[in-house]
Write a protein that binds this DNA or RNA. Structure first.
Lengths: 136, 136
DNA sequence: TTGCGTGCAAAGGTTTTGCATGGCA
DNA sequence: TGCCATGCAAAACCTTTGCACGCAA
C-alpha cells in the first residue's frame, strides 16, 4: 500500500462520486461541477485521483465506445461490486442499465468452460437499444 | 444513396482491408502501410473513407477501450456479418476472438424478451483474459 | 520537515474540420 | 464542366506529463 494524504479535493471528489452512484460521470463532469460551485479543481488532480481510485477498486471505469467519447466513472457500492452483473448501455440515449440476471453468471461460466475465456464482467458493456428508445 | 466516385485511394484502402480480413487494423496502420509502399494517403482521406464504409456497413468499427487506444476496423465478409456472434477481446494481449456459439443468440433473445433491451451484437465486445494469457 | 498533492501550462495521441486543389464522370 | 475526393495544416478532443509550489502528517 502506498502512502496518501487526505486533502479537501480528494474528499470532495469522492463525495461527489458517492452522491452520483447511479450515474456514470466523466472527469469533465467533476471539473465542471466544482467550477460551478466556486471551488475549481485542476484537471490533473481529477484525472490522477480517478486513476488511483480505479487502481484500488473504489470506482469503476468505463471507457467510451464512441469516437472521442470521454471515459465514465462510477463509485462501487460496498458489497455490490458488480462482479455478477453486466451493464448495458443504450447507444441512443446513453443510459446505463444494470442487468441483474442469473443467466449472465451461467453465461460467464459457459464461456470459461467451453471457450477458454475468462470474462471480466466489470469491464464489459453490452451495447444496444433500450426500451424507451425502441418506442421512439 | 449518395453519389461517390471511384478513386485510386479508395480502391487501395478497400483492398487493404479485404486482405486483412482476419486482423483488426487501425487508421494509422493504413496510413503507415501506404507510406511504406511509396504511395502515401492523407489522414483525412483515410478517416473520411473509413467513416463512409462503416456507414454503409462494409466494415465494422471497434472503438478502443483503453486510454488513447485507436479504433480498429475490419472488413465484413459477404454473408458473414457477425450479427450472430460476439467478439471477445483479451485485455492483456489485445487479441480479438470471434465467439461463434449458438448460446449467444439465445442470450440476445433472452435479454430482449426478459429485459427489454435489443442487443447490438456487432457493437458489443466482451472483455476478459484469453487462454494464452491465463497461462502466463 | 518530508514528500505527496495540486494546478497550471504544455504535450500526447486520435480524430475532425477548413479550404484550396485535384480528378472522376 | 460539375462536384466529389484529396491532402495539408490547424483545430478539437480527452488525457497525460513536467514542474514549481502548497499543504498534510
Amino acid at each position: 500500500m502506498e502512502k496518501s494524504y487526505k486533502t479537501k479535493q480528494r474528499a470532495a471528489i469522492l463525495e461527489y462520486l458517492k452522491q452520483n452512484i447511479d450515474n456514470h460521470i466523466t472527469a469533465d463532469n467533476i471539473i465542471e461541477y466544482f467550477k460551478k460551485i466556486g471551488s475549481p479543481i485542476g484537471k490533473s488532480t481529477v484525472y490522477r485521483f480517478l486513476d488511483s481510485l480505479v487502481e484500488e477498486n473504489t470506482i469503476r471505469k468505463y471507457s467510451g465506445s464512441e469516437r472521442g467519447e470521454a471515459a465514465c466513472f462510477q463509485y462501487i457500492e460496498d458489497g455490490h461490486e458488480c462482479h455478477t452483473h453486466f451493464h448495458m448501455k443504450c447507444s441512443k440515449c446513453g443510459d446505463l442499465i444494470h442487468l441483474d440476471c442469473h443467466d449472465m453468471e451461467e453465461l460467464a461460466e459457459h464461456i470459461f468452460k467451453e471457450h477458454k475465456f475468462k470474462l471480466d464482467i466489470c469491464k464489459t458493456i453490452l451495447y444496444g437499444t433500450c426500451e424507451k428508445c425502441m418506442n421512439n
